[in-house]
Structure formats: structure tokens, C-alpha cells
């Protein structure tokens, strides 16, 4: 295929090579090239946060990052949050606090929440609402999501 670029990156700790067109977003690469469909598309213009991933330590909406920009970077997706030992405390807290209904926004919320609690393990309700303002959820009204994040803090700080 003409115009295809070879990209070497690291995803969830695994060295990963892929080929993509320069116009393909990281979201497209994750989902369509690599088959990692845990990262969701909700708007494809950076406004809903369903495709949130960690990109060299910062959370980004992967629909606004080009696949070729992944060259040499470290990326964490929802598939990299749980471990073979089990769910991450953030995932466990979302499950136990009924913080998901349809679940389509959940991967983005969990990736964003994990990043918050790694930086600010004692974030209060106001800070949590501010941090998660870039992730839209249409089902829950956010109440149980915020409670789940507070519960995850308790679990992580125990």
C-alpha cells in the first residue's frame, strides 16, 4: 500500500509495531489495525472522552492523536488496566458502586480515573468532577461514578 508508515511504539508495556496511513488516528489504529476495541469511539472530535488513553503519561483523546505520532511513545489503554491477578481497584470500584449502566463510556472513565488517582491520591469531589468533565456519560448522571472514584481512592490508600 502506498503511503503507509511503519510505527514502533509501546502499548500496555508491550513493544508494538504497526503500519498505518498518515491520516489514520490513534483511535482507528487501536481499533481497526490492532483489534484493541476496548477504546471506544463516541464522537471522533475530542468532545466525549470515550477514547481516552494515556499517552506518555498524559491522558489524551486518542481520536485527536494521529497513529504516526505514537512512534516511540508509551501508551496505556483500557486493556492494560487489569492485571492477570485481577481487576484494578478503580475497575472494582466502578463495578461495586454501579457506576456504569450501558458501559460505553466506562473504559474512558476508568483510564482517566486511574491517571487522576496516580497523580492525586486524595482528590476531593470537586477535583474529581473537574478532572472528569472531559468524559461524557449519558446514563448515570455521574453520581455513582464520583462515588466510585472516592471509593477507589479509599481502596488504593488502604
Amino acid at each position: 500500500m502506498p503511503g503507509v508508515v511503519h510505527v514502533q511504539t509501546t502499548i500496555n508495556g508491550n513493544p508494538t509495531d504497526f503500519l498505518c496511513e498518515p491520516r489514520q488516528s490513534l483511535l482507528e489504529v487501536l481499533r481497526d489495525v490492532l483489534g484493541m476495541t476496548g477504546t471506544k469511539e463516541g464522537c471522533n472530535d475530542g468532545n466525549c472522552g470515550a477514547c481516552t488513553v494515556v499517552f506518555d503519561g498524559r491522558i489524551v483523546t486518542s481520536c485527536l492523536v494521529l497513529g504516526v505520532e505514537a512512534q516511540g511513545k508509551e501508551i496505556t489503554t483500557i486493556e492494560g488496566v487489569a492485571s492477570p491477578e485481577g481487576l484494578h481497584p478503580v475497575q472494582q470500584a466502578f463495578l461495586e458502586n454501579a457506576a456504569l449502566q450501558c458501559g460505553i463510556c466506562t473504559p474512558g472513565f476508568i483510564v482517566a480515573t486511574k491517571a487522576l488517582l496516580e497523580q492525586e491520591p486524595d482528590a476531593d469531589e470537586g477535583r474529581i468532577r473537574h478532572w472528569l468533565a472531559g468524559n461524557l456519560c449519558r446514563c448515570t448522571g455521574y453520581d455513582k461514578i464520583v462515588r466510585a472514584v472516592l471509593d477507589a481512592e479509599t481502596k488504593l490508600n488502604a
Binding site: R31, M36, K40, I78, L87, L95, A98, G103, T106
Partner: peptide, 23 residues
């Protein structure tokens, strides 16, 4: 009673297959 949902683990790990995920 407030039980855990059977599809919960799939939905917090990104494994649940939504319509756009089919290949």
C-alpha cells in the same frame, strides 16, 4: 438486593463487544 451485574467485568475491562467492535 444489590448484586454485581453478570456483564460487569467485561464492561470495566473493555472486553464487552459493542456493535462497532465486530470484525
Amino acid at each position: 438486593k444489590r448484586h454485581l451485574r453478570p456483564d460487569g467485568v467485561d464492561k470495566v475491562t473493555g472486553r464487552a463487544q459493542y456493535g462497532a467492535d465486530i470484525r
